[in-house]
Each structure stands twice: as C-alpha cells, then as structure tokens.
C-alpha cells in the first residue's frame, strides 16, 4: 500500500467500480437462475414445489443487487471510469503473488489425478516455496524437507493410519 504513485482515493473509486461490476454480474446470474427455477415442475402433492424456494431467494438477490447498483452509481464520480483499467492493472501488479499462488494451485489440482497426490504435492509445495521464500541458501534445505514430509509423508499417514487413499496417479 506504500507503493510510489499509489493514490488511495483513485484506488477506492476503482474498487467501487469493480464492486459495481460484481453487482451487475450477480444480478444477471440471479435473473438467469430465477428463470430456470420457473422451469422446475411443481408437484401435485405440495403447494410450493421444488422451484419456489430458489425463486424467492434469486428474486431477493436480484432486488438487493439492483439497490446496490443504484447506490454504487451514485457514489462513483464520472471521471473514475476512465481510470479504471489503469487502476486495475496497478492493483493486479501489486498483488502478482496472489495470481502466482492461485495459478500454482490450479495447476496442482489438475495434476493430482495425473501425477498422484504425493508427487504433485511435492512439486506444488516446493515450487510455491521457491517463489515465496526469502532468497537464502539455508532455507532451501528446509523447503525440500517440508515438501517431502507434507507430500509423501502425508500420503503415508492417510493410507496407513486413517486408511484414506489419496489419488495415486496414472503412472
């Protein structure tokens, strides 16, 4: 937050626009789900049917989302929209490790069924540790040991003690 050139007010306005976009997305999704809830057939045995509760909920979401949109539109100054793309880019730049972490998690989850839990976890832990850790030689040894314990060790613990078998992979 102490980055050079960081303007708190402009960042706040960009945040408000991002929230406005989220309200619009939520409104669209809830409207779509409300429509699909109307297609759920009712039962002759009950007054409400399986679609009634979802309809109440999604109508509620849509209503609150509309109120949120109106309130957000009142708050955002006209000039803020022009700065939105630049502010978002700056925000993402400040948080690049978040994207690295989530990306690594996504790759790890996809690789688990292929490589098996032990190997995929070892690579994920070690890889992410290498990205996040302070660049000192001493920490590398700790990183490797921790990665081995929480991948191969955890797999052994679950298989032998809890008889829960984690994915073994195709190899």
């Amino acid at each position: 937050m102490s980055d050079v050139g960081y303007d708190k007010q402009q960042a706040g306005e960009a945040g408000e626009i991002a929230r406005l976009l989220s309200y619009v997305l939520i409104l669209l999704a809830s409207a779509g789900l409300f429509v699909s809830a109307t297609a759920i057939p009712t039962s002759r045995f009950e007054q409400l049917g399986a679609g009634a509760f979802p309809k109440i909920v999604f109508a509620g979401i849509a209503l609150v989302a509309v109120i949120a949109i109106v309130e957000a539109l009142r708050k955002i100054p006209a000039g803020a929209y022009g700065r939105f793309a630049r502010q978002t880019q700056a925000w993402a730049g400040r948080r690049y490790l978040v994207f690295v972490t989530l990306g690594a998690l996504a790759v790890y989850l996809v690789l688990i069924p292929v490589l098996g839990f032990s190997l995929a976890s070892f690579l994920f832990i070690l890889g992410l540790e290498l990205v996040l850790m302070p660049r000192r030689a001493a920490t590398l040894l700790i990183a490797v040991i921790v990665a081995a314990v929480f991948s191969f060790g955890l797999n052994w613990l679950f298989a032998e003690v809890f008889t829960v078998f984690l994915p073994r992979g195709v190899f």
Binding site: T101, L105, Y108, L109, I112, P113, F117, S121, F124, I125, L128, E129, L132, M133, P134, T139, I142, A143, V146, A147, F150, S151, L154, F158, F162, V164, F165, L166, P167
Partner: peptide, 26 residues
Amino acid sequence: KWLIVPVVMVCCVVGSFALNNRVSDL
C-alpha cells in the same frame, strides 16, 4: 508464511478429497 501457505493449502486439498474421495471436489 512462505512455509505455511503451501503446506496448509495441501492440507485443505487432503481435507476436501477425504470427505467423499472425489477428484471433482478438488
């Protein structure tokens, strides 16, 4: 943090998988 974050993420993965033994849950 650099140790805790990846390790606890793996624990979360184990916890999620062990509930139903389904890869799709991951």
